[in-house]
Design a protein around this nucleic acid. Structure first.
Length: 291
DNA sequence: GATGCGTGGCG
DNA sequence: TCGCCAAGCAT
């Protein structure tokens, strides 16, 4: 006999405990869901909420965003981090407007071809917006499955074939149920089966959790990545771009120079921002957000 | 497959 | 305090 499936208890838990997030409401559109997914890449929900609301009020359709300079998307991105995502979202809006009649595509492979849309985001939009049956493997789901079925505290750094197969095995046959299951497992990982201090007492499937039943053995693999930040090019880039975001028009070079003392690193970071299309060097020597 | 890419909150 | 972590993607 196969082991007990976690589907029903997780679905019931979700029905009773899901957060009221605006991109989950019935009024959410495929576009608003796509925007939320790009913003949520590596960024906590609480920080995304206000920016997402502003974006939806200002750019309710892909065409509305596509009509603006990409720099406006970068400016409105605020301090969400990884501002290349703003550029990619703008490029998404242009592609959707020009190639897909202004409608977010509902096909997984077509979604995958959009800028900034990888395996996770394509599956998430197909599932959440179009109620299709896809394995949606984000960091939350990977952690839940690692504990529940594999019996380890954390999943491997990079998603493996085995994880995908496992996720597909657990996917309910019915598409609508699968779509709810996908968001439910993700929510379980976000609220209960958390990385640092899991709230196992509140878990609806604790009775079948391989990790818990084995006494919650601590993580045993290679050291998990520690990304230093202070003094890095990333921090420098952030400082430079912040100046441009907070200024309405182009800025003079000295306005950029004052935010980072190491000139070599500063120039390298600025060149990187220009190469990424996040900063536009004007002919008069000033710098601006891109058109 | 390993790296680079922001930002801020929390244990 | 400070390392870890947060709905990844592109190269």
């Amino acid at each position: 006999m196969s082991s007990q499936m976690p589907t029903e208890p997780v679905l019931q838990w979700y029905a009773e405990n899901a957060r009221d997030l605006p991109w989950r409401e019935a009024s959410a559109t495929p576009w608003s869901i796509l925007v939320s997914e790009l913003m949520l890449q590596q960024t906590p929900v609480v920080r995304v909420l206000p920016v997402w609301r502003e974006w939806m009020g200002r750019w309710p359709t892909p065409a509305a965003l596509a009509a603006e300079p990409s720099g406006e998307a970068v400016r409105a991105w605020g301090r969400l981090g990884y501002p290349r995502r703003a550029l990619r979202l703008h490029a998404c809006a242009v592609a959707i407007t020009e190639r897909h009649g202004g409608r977010v595509p509902d096909d997984h492979d077509t979604l995958l071809a959009l800028p900034g849309v990888g395996a996770y985001t394509a599956a998430a939009v197909a599932s959440f917006a179009f109620r299709q049956r896809h394995a949606v493997l984000d960091t939350n789901v990977r952690r839940v499955l690692a504990r529940l079925r594999t019996g380890v505290e954390y999943p491997p750094k990079a998603a493996t074939r085995a994880e995908t197969k496992l996720a597909e095995t657990l996917l309910p046959a019915d598409a609508e149920t699968a779509a709810t299951w996908a968001v439910a497992v993700m929510e379980l990982g976000a609220l209960v089966c958390t990385a640092r201090s899991p709230r196992c007492a509140d878990c609806p499937v604790i009775d079948q959790c391989a990790w818990y039943l084995d006494g919650k053995p601590p993580y045993d693999g290679p050291p998990r990545r520690g990304q230093t930040y202070a003094g890095t090019d990333r921090q420098c880039r952030g400082r430079l771009l912040a100046v441009l975001r907070e200024t309405s028009g182009p800025v003079e070079k000295p306005a950029l120079d004052v935010v980072w003392s190491d000139a070599v690193q500063r120039e390298r970071a600025l060149d990187g921002l220009i190469a990424d299309g996040l900063v536009d060097p004007l002919e008069d020597g000033r710098y601006a957000l891109p058109r």
